Computed example of a mutant assay.
Amino acid sequence: MADGIRFEKVSVAYGGNTVLDSLDLTVESGEVMALLGPSGSGKTTALRAVAGFVRPASGRVLIGDRDVTDLPPHRRGIGMVVQQYALFPHLRVEDNVAFGLKAQKVAKNEIPGRVTEALEMTGMASYAKRYPRELSGGQQQRVAIARALAIRPGVLLLDEPLSALDAQLRSGMLAELARLHRELPDVSILYVTHDQVEALTLADRIAVMDKARLQDVGTPQELYRRPRTEFTASFVGNANLLPVQVGSGSVSFAGAELKVPTGDVSSGVSATLCVRPHLVGLGDGPNALTGSVAEVQWRGSTHRLYVDVDGHRLKADLRELRTPPALGDEVTVHFAPEDAVLLSAGVSADG
């Protein structure tokens, strides 16, 4: 059974400035949990608290059933990969991968086999005798992952591991990380990123961070289709966020009555309506809104239309528009009731 990770009211402060505020979060055994958020949101601090590189001002960090809050990094049994690879330039690939094994005082006769196993897992076995300078960025990152896996950790920490790679390499490495997770189902992974595509692609669940606090947590599908907060809606995928007034059985926006599920949102309050751009259609339909085209962007397989509706700019991602509308054209857009989510003001991850 893999080791899970548990944060119990973990806070971290530097010079009186709180950078992680009372984090309560559990990464289940064998789960990939992405910490997603902008710079300064606290996600990397949370990962460093697990690694042992920062000491919480309060709270506890547990790996499995062990309280590791006061343990040094080398006694936590974790593997870690950072964005800049951190390979030793004077050591060959095989020696870089062996480094952690030697630090853990693994038997000498066992090390070569463990190194080969980790390099084969990451597709780098044929590069064992090369130096880091003889490798591409993607290859160096594979070696860094192999080094982390060689110690057979119960927990793997990945801190923005793909951010230094170009788009094509990043896509390839995403596929490789997904494959590794399938091959290592007992390893719990905490993956820090500001890139929503990485989080949506790899994670079993996503924890959304902002301003040192946990804002939301759920599966990628839950957070994308039914976000609980405006921040989640805007950070996990693109979203139209429209200010609306909730009535009895209906919602009003820009003088139009919209039919959308109101859920637990009370009648007579202001709220925010979330609709994903790809769920907005052009032409008449349910929940029709009329406005003027403010901008048209061709994005290859889609056109992104920006439509001004009563002073609010609404985005629509439309496929296969052979003749898109021109700037200033009046158009009607619509969306299905079931594709809209009503968000109450002031909802946080704590409810």
Rank of each mutant, 00 (worst) to 15 (best):
residue 301 S to W: 00
residue 318 L to H: 02
residue 319 R to Y: 08
residue 312 H to Y: 04
residue 297 Q to K: 09
residue 337 P to W: 04
residue 337 P to N: 00
residue 338 E to R: 07
residue 314 L to G: 14
residue 288 A to F: 08
residue 340 A to W: 05
residue 326 A to Q: 10
residue 340 A to M: 04
residue 294 A to I: 09
residue 303 H to D: 10
residue 331 V to I: 06
residue 338 E to K: 04
residue 339 D to C: 07
residue 341 V to L: 04
residue 313 R to C: 09
residue 294 A to Y: 11
residue 305 L to K: 01
residue 305 L to Y: 03
residue 339 D to Q: 11
residue 294 A to P: 03
residue 320 E to L: 14
residue 336 A to S: 12
residue 296 V to L: 12
residue 325 P to F: 02
residue 329 D to Q: 05
residue 304 R to E: 15
residue 331 V to E: 00
residue 319 R to M: 10
residue 294 A to V: 14
residue 320 E to K: 11
residue 336 A to W: 01
residue 315 K to T: 13
residue 290 T to L: 02
residue 298 W to N: 14
residue 326 A to T: 13
residue 302 T to M: 03
residue 332 T to P: 02
residue 305 L to S: 06
residue 296 V to H: 08
residue 323 T to H: 05
residue 293 V to S: 05
residue 317 D to F: 12
residue 308 D to P: 03
residue 330 E to Y: 06
residue 290 T to C: 01
residue 290 T to S: 07
residue 333 V to S: 08
residue 341 V to D: 02
residue 321 L to H: 09
residue 322 R to M: 07
residue 293 V to F: 11
residue 306 Y to D: 07
residue 332 T to G: 04
residue 288 A to P: 01
residue 307 V to C: 05
residue 321 L to P: 12
residue 316 A to E: 03
residue 293 V to C: 06
residue 307 V to R: 00
residue 289 L to K: 09
residue 292 S to C: 04
residue 323 T to S: 09
residue 314 L to D: 14
residue 324 P to W: 11
residue 333 V to C: 09
residue 300 G to H: 02
residue 328 G to P: 03
residue 299 R to F: 10
residue 300 G to L: 03
residue 333 V to L: 15
residue 309 V to P: 01
residue 317 D to W: 07
residue 323 T to D: 08
residue 308 D to R: 04
residue 342 L to M: 06
residue 337 P to S: 03
residue 322 R to D: 12
residue 316 A to C: 09
residue 292 S to D: 11
residue 312 H to V: 13
residue 333 V to N: 03
residue 326 A to R: 09
residue 337 P to A: 02
residue 343 L to K: 00
residue 315 K to R: 12
